[in-house]
């Protein structure tokens, strides 16, 4: 006899609310949670950076911070208003494309940020285009040949890569491909109006670095997901039906593992966006990560806030997508009783 159903201990009303009735409801609630998370994150970012010690006006004026000057600047920046009101105004502005003005250059942040966001997304997209299919193929192959020389080699290599900081991978590639072989430029200098071929050549090393880093993570997680599924009783049944390993992995395991694997892919894409900060710095690639690092160094808070918001949107979006897709691909939920 199966053990009797356990009483709900601890009670999880949230669980019931989320999984209670149907997939549409779950997806809807997951999207709602994503939006709420985004709102709370932006509030924390904004209010956190505003309320912590240090006054923006004093920071801007630096040496010339006489009390009169500070008071004047505070008024012009709207710093006399309560912080929640300034947050609402800021968020309202952001929603209309007005991200405020940079303290460092005085230019509107939107004009600084948007081209760079485009550069970063282009870099990430190129890396993803190579890394995702390659990682899935290699991950599946690695699982197919578990324990054999090829699998061991790919495991050792990928462990090595994920143990390295991104900048080591980047500099390694520069030394070999740029300094010694002279095949590719070591700087990822791109500018508006650049021809696509030249642009791609300049971006080759950053793309390659990002690809390698994400590839290693994705490959390992794909392999682990498939192998974890290998222990399921239905796999033993499939073997007892006389099926071979290839058929078992492709026809039996993949339909079950597709949800988790898609989640793995999206989580790694999200990771890639953060990893881009370091890679952009290594190659002096004009992306949003480099903008953020510059702004932090110069303590240009409005720019930092705007960059943080953009990263949060990308990250929360991909995470929400991962949750929703993992669910959509769950066979038990897709075909309800």
């Amino acid at each position: 006899m199966a053990p009797a159903a356990r009483p709900g201990w601890p009670p999880e009303p949230l669980h019931l609310l989320l999984y209670g009735s149907g997939m549409a409801r779950f997806i809807f609630s997951r999207l709602a949670i994503g939006l709420v998370t985004l709102f709370v994150v932006s509030a924390l970012f904004y209010l956190g950076t505003e309320m912590l010690p240090g006054d923006v006006a004093t920071a801007i004026l630096g040496q010339s911070a006489t009390p009169a000057n500070v008071a004047k600047l505070r008024l012009s920046l709207g710093l006399d208003q309560p912080s929640w009101l300034r947050f609402v105004n800021w968020l309202w502005g952001c929603l209309h494309g007005d991200l405020g003005k940079s303290l460092a250059s005085g230019r509107p942040i939107a004009t600084l940020l948007l081209p760079r966001l485009g550069n970063t997304l282009f870099l990430a997209a190129c890396a993803a285009l190579i890394a995702v299919p390659l990682a899935l193929t290699l991950g599946i192959l690695s699982a197919l040949h578990e324990g054999k020389a090829t699998d061991r080699a790919s495991s050792a290599l990928s462990l090595g890569i994920i143990s390295m900081p991104e900048f080591l991978v980047g500099y390694g590639l520069i030394i070999v491909l740029s300094v010694h072989l002279g095949w590719l430029p070591s700087l990822g200098t791109v500018f508006p109006g650049m021809a696509l071929g030249l642009r791609l050549k300049a971006m080759a090393l950053p793309i390659l670095t990002l690809t390698l880093v994400v590839l290693a993570h994705m490959l390992r997680m794909t392999r682990a997901t498939i192998l974890a599924e290998m222990a399921a009783p239905y796999v033993e049944m499939a073997r007892l039906k006389g099926l071979d390993r290839r058929r078992i992995i492709l026809a039996h395991i993949l339909p079950n593992a597709s949800g988790p694997i898609i989640a793995v892919v999206l989580l790694n894409l999200a990771y890639m966006v953060a990893g881009a900060v370091v890679v952009e710095t290594v190659f002096v690639y004009p992306g949003i990560g480099q903008l953020l690092v510059d702004a932090v160094t110069k303590r240009d808070l409005p720019t930092v806030q705007a960059c943080g918001l953009v990263f949060a949107i990308v990250y929360v979006g991909l995470n929400t997508g991962a949750d929703v897709l993992a669910l959509v691909f769950n066979p038990r939920l897709r075909h309800r009783r």
């Binding site: 007892l240 039996h252 339909p255």
Partner: peptide
């Protein structure tokens, strides 16, 4: 051919 103890576990839930 083999018949397992727990059919619930031995059938692939995705097919």
């Amino acid at each position: 051919a083999y018949v397992a103890q727990s059919a619930a576990a031995a059938f692939n839930p995705a097919l």
